[in-house]
Simulated assay, not measured.
Amino acid sequence: MNNNLMNVGVLFSELDIKERTKIIAQQINKDYGTNETLVVLIVLHGALIFGADLVRNLEMPTEIETIRIKSYEGTASTGKINLVTPLPTSLAGKHVLIVEDIVDTGRSIHFLLNELAKSEAISLKVCSLLDKPEAHEFPVKADYVGFTISKNFVIGYGLDLNGKYRNLPYIANLTKA
């Protein structure tokens, strides 16, 4: 990373994330039990790493699906949701857990929940690694949240800036230098 372009401050270490992911998985295991199949719908690309780590800690049978939406350019939301891949068609009669990297304005989750409401799933819940309540513009609330953060732009552990920095093992606050 070119330090002339930006400064980062670690918000959550790799260990913090690993421990919190296990706690979230324990709650999901408790809520769903070990008999029901859970469809884990991972929102690409940001939630890929978190989703993979979360699924490894789940005890029930799981099906993994992915969806790709786009709403950001650089550090700002475009205000529009673009569905890059189609929604899975096999969700009827199943429990679905949407795994998101961050609930920022809430626009993406609001959009997905409205679209998935047509799927005839038994249940729809949201698990988000990060939540920015002060940035919410839509009345959405994740059922499971890793960490609550302020209205800053963050990178790492799947979160990016123009496709870069997803590979950082921690979550960092991004400030322009």
Rank of each mutant, 00 (worst) to 15 (best):
V43R: 09
Y165H: 06
A92F: 08
I23E: 06
A117P: 13
P86E: 01
E137N: 14
K80M: 05
L116K: 04
I42M: 15
V126Y: 10
H110I: 09
Y144K: 01
N29E: 00
E36F: 14
G79L: 00
F12Q: 02
D31E: 00
Q27W: 13
Y144Q: 05
L41Q: 15
P61T: 00
A172S: 02
L124T: 10
A121P: 11
E36L: 02
F12I: 04
K22N: 12
Y144I: 05
L112T: 13
M1E: 06
F147M: 01
V39P: 02
P139V: 11
M60L: 05
K94N: 14
I64Y: 09
G9F: 08
M60D: 10
N35F: 12
L87C: 05
E137R: 12
P169G: 10
V103R: 02
S150Y: 02
V39K: 00
M6P: 11
G93P: 03
D143M: 03
T105D: 04
I171H: 10
P86L: 14
R68I: 03
N173T: 02
C127L: 04
I102R: 01
I64D: 04
I98V: 05
S128N: 06
I109W: 13
K94R: 05
I42T: 15
V154L: 03
G33W: 10
D53G: 15
H45Q: 09
Y32Q: 15
L11N: 15
D31F: 04
P86K: 11
K151C: 07
K94S: 13
T175R: 07
K118I: 02
D160A: 00
C127W: 14
I171Q: 11
I23Y: 14
P139A: 06
N35W: 11
G51E: 00
D143I: 11
I155A: 03
Y157I: 02
I42Y: 09
N57G: 13
L174G: 10
K70S: 06
P139W: 10
L116M: 09
S108F: 03
A172R: 01
N3W: 12
I64Q: 15
I109Q: 00
T148C: 05
A177V: 08
K70C: 11
Y157A: 05
L113G: 08
R107Q: 07
I155W: 08
L174Y: 09
I109F: 12
K118V: 14
N35Q: 13
C127H: 12
Q26P: 04
D131F: 09
V140P: 07
I42Q: 12
V103N: 02
G9E: 10
Y32K: 08
L112Q: 13
D131C: 09
E59H: 08
E73I: 00
V103L: 09
A142N: 06
Y157C: 03
K125L: 02
V96E: 04
I149K: 10
V145K: 06
A76Q: 04
I17S: 12
I109C: 03
